[in-house]
């Protein structure tokens, strides 16, 4: 019974999400436009596309985003990796070892 209820909930959540993304967003492929109120505004990605080649000198704009504009995220990402390594080491450390 509980499983049926959970299944129903999953279906409902999925249907709601699909309905939302297919009605409330501009159609697929409409970057850089975003509907803000009555105006159509550009997403910040567009501004980065315009400025990045000259600002960072990198041919790959994604690289300039990863290492330049959003460098702090990359620092966080590396920290997550470090955390996971330490965490796995902590969980899988040799049994019975005493310091």
């Amino acid at each position: 019974m509980k499983r049926v209820l959970t299944f129903g909930m999953v279906v409902a959540v999925g249907a709601l999400l699909i309905f939302t993304v297919s009605t409330d967003l501009l159609p697929f492929g409409s970057f850089p436009q975003r509907q803000v109120g009555e105006d159509i505004k550009n997403a910040i990605g567009q501004q980065i596309l315009v400025e990045a080649p000259e600002d960072t000198g990198s041919a790959n704009v994604v690289t300039s985003v990863v290492w330049g504009y959003r460098g702090y995220d990359t620092l966080g990402e590396v920290t997550v990796l470090f955390t996971a390594v330490v965490g796995v080491l902590a969980v899988l450390r040799a049994v019975g070892k005493r310091e």
């Binding site: 955390t83 330490v86 965490g87 080491l89 902590a90 450390r93 040799a94 019975g96 005493r98 310091e99």
Partner: peptide, 11 residues
């Protein structure tokens, strides 16, 4: 008295 204290403090 635990082992793996290095990982403990790092975490």
């Amino acid at each position: 008295q635990e082992s793996g204290l290095g990982q403990y403090y790092t975490l």
